[in-house]
Each structure stands twice: as structure tokens, then as C-alpha cells.
Design a binder for these strands. Structure first.
Lengths: 337, 337
DNA sequence: CTGAAAGCGCTTACAG
DNA sequence: CTGAAAGCGCTTACAG
């Protein structure tokens, strides 16, 4: 490993003091930096010798890191798709920030204590993509860090973002009404309707139904993946009056679609199916399954934006930000042309 | 923002020199640290005042960051699932390393130059999850960083990991043979068989076919998602002799499954279907689609392991590491019991 | 416009 | 076992 070039090396070569080099190279717009001749010489030498500032020195001096932390725990307690990650990194990069992943051992209480984050100050702010409700202990540990904290996937009043699940369900419901369906059901096999986002979706459906003055039916259950085909069979045997279904996960929606195919139930004439997706799976079906698409990339960008804004004005917390889904209409709810 | 507690603060309170505090708190196993009495007092005060070491100071002094960079570009040029990320962060955390995401603007040449990584030394090593072949310029820029570089998703001889795609295809082929199928076809609609991983899969199939002394057919094409249902219809019209298909993506496999359902083709008696998956989608079908499952989490762990090993011995590069898929058998290739 | 000083927090020799 | 010194690379006042 070759010894790296420092500001002093350049200063020596040009024949000025290190401070001058610092000002010229990183001084920003301050006019009083150096006279043109020297400035150009410094830049030239820096480029020639491949000078790269040593961030640790800057950090130590400035007390700022230009880095935002992301707290990651067990894989089933956070949600951070590749697209969201890309959006986040892109947004942060525009202000020269990087993102640092901190692994929190265990799922619950000792979460933060074990991570290097709490032992060594390393970031200017922290992003938390947890799905589950944070423990009191985590919250108090976070407070002790004295840095801004932004929550993804959480409907807190301040410093949080969330996907507009209610709006997504409402949008699907409205679409089905528009297509002429009246007996609309909502099916959840993933957890008895207990998840926060499922509850929000149900609220959206209630609201849409009220707006249109129509009814709807809820079918909430917890059924293991392996047992879903049988559950769907039974559903189609007994719920003959259902015209249209909003299925809470695309994977369950696929089971409905495939079972309907096998039973020669016509899609969408006999049964319409709509669901929720990240945009990469709804169209891996024939016909496409009409879906509310999660704005993953925009979610990342928006998170970055929020963190940066928060860092500009550290004292002031920001109101909850809500991201809308996008409707993708497929042959599962509208007859193809 | 309250002023943070430093080593000197603790030293003052206990009445010793800062060095003593440093040795006691971070000295490792060196016996000659301080006498027991003082040691305990220091630890007590540190805990009481919530001391956290300031990493920038350590970095500057030690010249090491305890941080590994991950280079992220445009979302379609890298592959980093949430599970891989979790495995990576978990593995690094065991040695107290964190991972820092660096965004590379643009896709190709200016990749690294624009990122903060190349401008400020911040990491001890770099992980690159790019899918496409890196440009010469990127490679030379990486060399100029003088830190170890580990490639994910690339079959380079050294300092790289890759998924054993050939082995995965071979495994599926063997399974189909075992189930008694003889006319086995490989279908790719995603790019004429041009992708590296597709080519490797074909090699695996060739090898397995040779081992068993049987033939196979290749159906390579580039068909947009919207046109795949029609392509599948046509395929099933014309290729009546195909007994079993290995489909290059699960999304295309689903189209085959659903079209077969609609046409009353029996799965798996008339047609067996096998594919590749990350483990979360193959079972969102009825029947489950037999798949070679990518070991995403293990991939992350293995990458972490490789980087850490490389950092222990910076001079020595490591041989390519290959990760095996896992076979998940579903009703699409074997009649369910 | 330019230079000398001081210090961010930490740890590694070195001398007692 | 303990303390005083020195310095990692950088930037911010301050004085010329």
C-alpha cells in the first residue's frame, strides 16, 4: 500500500502553507483563497499526484460525517428493496452523503446497544426501515444518540414516511366500481388482518365503499402458504356471489387466478382480481393482475430528501410524508381489447 | 445537541491521564493497563456518563475505518436483495465492521470518479455487486484506490463470488430425469440466452444431458413480457412432444403454468415445469413450481466472510467462491402425495 | 492574499 | 502500572 498524498505534500511541492491548499481545494466560494496563479498550481499538483482528502481528518475537525446510518436487523423485521436502496443512495449522493448500514443483533431490545453505531458516533442521522413496532428501549436508546431519526414504514406523526396503503386499497376499490363490479370482497390470508398495513387497507376500502354507497365483504384469516390452494378452492365453492376480489398479497392473488383457470372460471367476467405489488410481479401472470404498485424507488428518494432536510435544520422535526401507489390495470379486472 | 463525552472527560473525573482510559476501554488484552481499582472506576464512569468512542479520532490515529464500501449504481446494474444485504451486514458486524453504500452516478465510465469514495478515503475494502461487465476505466479507478475489491455476481478468477448457475440447471435436469422425463427443454424469453448466467445454465444442462446420455432442446428468444402469453400459447401448440421444461425465469414459468391450466394440460403428467427462484415466489403458485433456490442470505454472509478474510491478509487475493442453489421440489414436476 | 497556531479525539511508542 | 509527548489530516479563527 503506497502512502497516500496529503494536503501537506501538495503544500510542500507548491511552496505554500497547508492551509492555503485546504482553502483552495475545499474552501467553497470564499474569495480570499489565493491568487489565481497559486490556485491553479495547487489544483494541478493535486490532480497530478492523485490527492484525495482523508475524510477522518475532516470529520474530526468539523464534527460532521456526511453520512447517514441505516439500522438493519433480522431480515424479517425490515423492508428495504433494492430499488428503495438505489433511490436512497442516489438522493443522498446529491448532497455528498453516503449511507452506512448498521447491523442490530437480535430483533428486539438489545437492538442498538450491540451495534457499532451506539458505541462510536459515526453518522449525522439515522434511518430506520423496521416494520414492527419499536420497543421502548430502542426508542430511548435512539434518543440518547442525539441525532435526527427518520422512520420508514411507520405512521408516526413526525419524522416518518409511509406508503399510502389506505389510498392504494381505495384506488383498487374505485377501479372495480368503475368497471361495474358491485360485490367486492377483501381477502387476507397472511395474518387475520393484524398487520398495520392490512388495517390501513381495510380503512381505505371502508371509505371507498361509503363514498359509493355500496357494501363489501371481509375475509380475514391466517392460512399457511401450503394450505392456501385448498382455502381458495373452498372460497370459490362457498362464496359464489363474489364478483370481484381485492387480495392482500400478489402471491395469494396468483393462487386465486390459477385456481380460477383450473376451474374454468372466466377472468374477469366471472371473477375480477386485484392486488398489491412492487411492480415486478403483477405482469408475470396471464392475464396481468391489476395491482396497486408500491413506489419503491420514489420511497428511497423521498427518504433521502427528508433526512437531508432534517439535517439542514436539526432542531425542527418534519411532518409524516405519505407516498401514493400507482394503479396498473391488467386483464384480471378489465376485459382486454 | 449536548456536548459528547470524551476520553479526557472521563480521565479528569477519575483523576488519571487520558491514555489510561484509552487503554482500559479499548486496550484489548494487554495486561499492563491499570490496576484493578482504577480499571473498574474508569469503566463505571464511562458507563455512567454514556461515553461512546468517537470513531473519527480512532480512524485518524489508526488509519483504519472498520468499514467496507458497497458500490451501488443504477438499479438495473446491480443485484443486492434484502436477504443478501442482511447476511452481509450480519457477517461484517461480527468483526465490528459496517458497510457503507456509495452511489456511483451514471452507469458506465464516470462511475467511481463521481462518488465520494474516490474523493475521500473512507473504507478498508470495496464490494461490487454489479451485474454487467465493468468498464476498463472502472477497473483502473479501482486499482488507484489501493484497497481490496471483492466482486459479487462475477466469475473472475480471484476475489469474486458467484452463484453456481450451471450447478443449479444441472440439478433441475437431474431431478427431471429422475422423475422419468426424457424430452426436456430449456426456455429463455429474456434475452436470447445472452446473459452470462443464462449461458452458465445452458452449460449445466449440456453437462447433465451428456452424463445421462439423453438429448435436450433449447428455446432461446427475446420476448417482451406483454407478448409472452401468446408465445407460450404458440409454444404449446407446436412443441407437443415436450414433456418437461426448465424455464429460465420464474415469471415465465408462471405463464406456462397458467396457460397449461387454461388449456387443461395436466401438470405434471402432461407437462413438467421447473425454474429458478429466490425462495419467496415459487410457492405462490398452485402447484408449487419446482425451483432451484438462490441462497441469497448465505451469499451475503459468504461475501462478508471473504472481505474480512481478505482484510486480514491484504496482500493475498482469494480464489473464486461458488455458491450452490437448493432444490425445492413442487407439484409442477412430481405428482403430489 | 498568506502563514503560524491550535485543536478536533484518539492511540502508540517511550520514559519513568 | 502510569504519565507526558507526539501526531494521524484537516480546517477555523487569527494575525499579519
Amino acid at each position: 500500500m503506497k502512502k497516500a498524498v496529503t494536503i501537506s505534500d501538495i503544500a510542500k511541492e507548491v511552496g505554500v502553507a497547508p492551509q492555503v491548499v485546504s482553502r483552495v481545494l475545499h474552501g467553497g466560494k470564499s474569495t480570499a483563497s489565493a491568487r489565481k496563479e497559486i490556485r491553479e498550481q495547487i489544483k494541478e499538483v493535486a490532480a497530478k499526484r492523485g490527492y484525495r482528502p482523508y475524510a477522518a481528518g475532516q470529520m474530526l475537525r468539523k464534527g460532521t460525517f456526511k453520512s447517514v446510518g441505516i439500522l438493519i436487523g433480522h431480515a424479517d423485521n425490515f423492508l428495504l428493496s433494492q430499488l428503495t436502496l438505489a433511490g436512497l443512495a442516489e438522493g443522498l449522493a446529491e448532497k455528498e452523503y453516503t449511507a452506512t448500514l448498521f447491523h442490530a443483533k437480535g430483533q428486539s431490545d438489545s437492538a442498538l446497544l450491540d451495534s457499532r453505531l451506539i458505541t462510536s458516533k459515526l453518522t449525522d442521522a439515522l434511518i430506520i426501515p423496521y416494520i414492527r413496532k419499536p420497543s421502548r428501549r430502542l426508542i430511548s436508546e435512539l434518543k440518547s444518540l442525539h441525532i435526527p431519526v427518520i422512520w420508514m414504514n411507520r405512521r408516526s406523526r413526525h419524522d416518518a414516511l409511509h406508503m399510502n396503503e389506505a389510498g392504494a386499497a381505495e384506488m383498487l376499490f374505485n377501479h372495480l366500481i368503475e368497471q361495474g363490479y358491485r360485490d367486492i370482497g377483501f381477502v387476507d390470508y397472511s395474518g387475520n388482518g393484524e398487520d398495520t398495513h392490512t388495517q390501513e387497507r381495510i380503512i381505505g376500502i371502508e371509505k371507498a365503499a361509503e363514498n359509493h354507497g355500496v357494501g363489501f365483504s371481509l375475509h380475514l384469516d391466517r392460512i399457511a402458504r401450503a394450505d392456501r390452494p385448498a382455502a381458495v378452492q373452498k372460497f370459490l365453492d362457498t362464496q359464489k356471489n363474489a364478483q370481484a376480489l381485492i387480495v392482500n398479497s400478489l402471491s395469494a392473488a396468483q393462487i386465486f387466478l390459477q385456481t380460477a383457470h383450473q376451474r374454468k372460471i372466466r377472468i374477469p367476467q366471472d371473477l375480477a382480481i386485484a392486488s398489491f405489488d412492487d411492480g415486478s410481479h403483477f405482469n408475470a401472470n396471464t392475464p396481468y393482475i391489476t395491482s396497486a404498485i408500491r413506489p419503491d424507488f420514489a420511497f428511497g428518494r423521498s427518504t433521502a430528501d427528508m433526512v437531508l432536510r432534517r439535517l439542514e435544520d436539526p432542531g425542527k422535526s418534519l411532518p409524516l410524508r405519505s407516498l401514493d401507489f400507482e394503479l396498473q390495470i391488467g386483464g384480471s379486472t378489465r376485459e382486454e381489447i
